[in-house]
Design a protein around this nucleic acid. Structure first.
Lengths: 131, 131
DNA sequence: GGGGGCAGTGAAACAGTGTCTCAATAATGC
DNA sequence: GCATTATTGAGACACTGTTTCACTGCCCCC
């Protein structure tokens, strides 16, 4: 990850090293969790730098973020049980899809991981016909 | 939706009617959008009541919310391109899955809706083996 | 290996979303 | 109608994430 930064012409600073170190510990972490871990190891590093580094790394593709876009709750009247969305990266338009992840996929996950699934969220991102 | 409220023993108040009315206009709306629309038609209705009603309706299943859970950005080192999650409703644990929505599903969506997909998010919710 | 330019920083203020508290209000059952 | 009590609106609060700005320290160049 540090290599990716350097290769893209970015400087290797303490703040960036600290964030990468925490991310390399693995697992799934929320942004505030990452801030906390970074500051435990490197109290000098500021919150803003952590957020900046996270945004930078995901822009470079070295980091995967979920719920990255503006995190607001979205609602729609429940029809047909559930539905999924396509969100346009350019105009933010939301298209409601009827397509759904096949039941076989969910059954496979339940069997493999020993979990019980009672809901899911499937969202696609890209460009809509107008954009 | 009003029926569902009444059937569950909740009172039919102006605030609740206003929220339901806005939701029945259809489409996808963010919570702040709903607040704005409600207050345009019924300036007396408070923000808190709108949020309370939205939470109540989705608890009753009359409303579908996405990104309903605490909306924080989550990150993990990018491996194998992408991955998906199972989130336990009880302990909030996140399990990383390797399963993915089949490419055929995505191709179908691109063809049918005329969009170009370059990313997606697939999350399952339920109970983990421990819970 | 030692400047110098400037990318990057930390701190703090800001903006936005969602929650909570509490006195006041109004929907319901009788 | 009236009493009960669920629900409300206002405002304070907590939290996440962004922006600003003066300062710092990384890296290139000689």
């Amino acid at each position: 990850m540090l290599g990716a930064l350097q290769a893209a012409g970015y400087r290797l600073t303490t703040a960036r090293r600290a964030v990468v170190e925490v991310l390399h510990r693995g697992g799934h972490k929320s942004a505030p969790q990452i801030v906390a871990e970074v500051q435990r190891s490197y109290p000098g590093v500021g919150r803003a730098s952590v957020y900046r580094t996270l945004a930078l790394l995901s822009r470079l593709g070295a980091l995967q973020g979920s719920l990255l876009r503006t995190a607001q709750a979205h609602y729609a009247a429940a029809r047909r049980g559930h539905h999924h969305h396509f969100v346009c990266n350019a105009c933010q338009q939301v298209i409601e899809l009827e397509e759904c992840a096949p039941a076989s996929l969910m059954e496979g996950i339940e069997r493999r991981w020993g979990v019980r699934i009672d809901g899911h969220l499937l969202e696609f991102y890209g460009l809509c016909p107008q954009c």
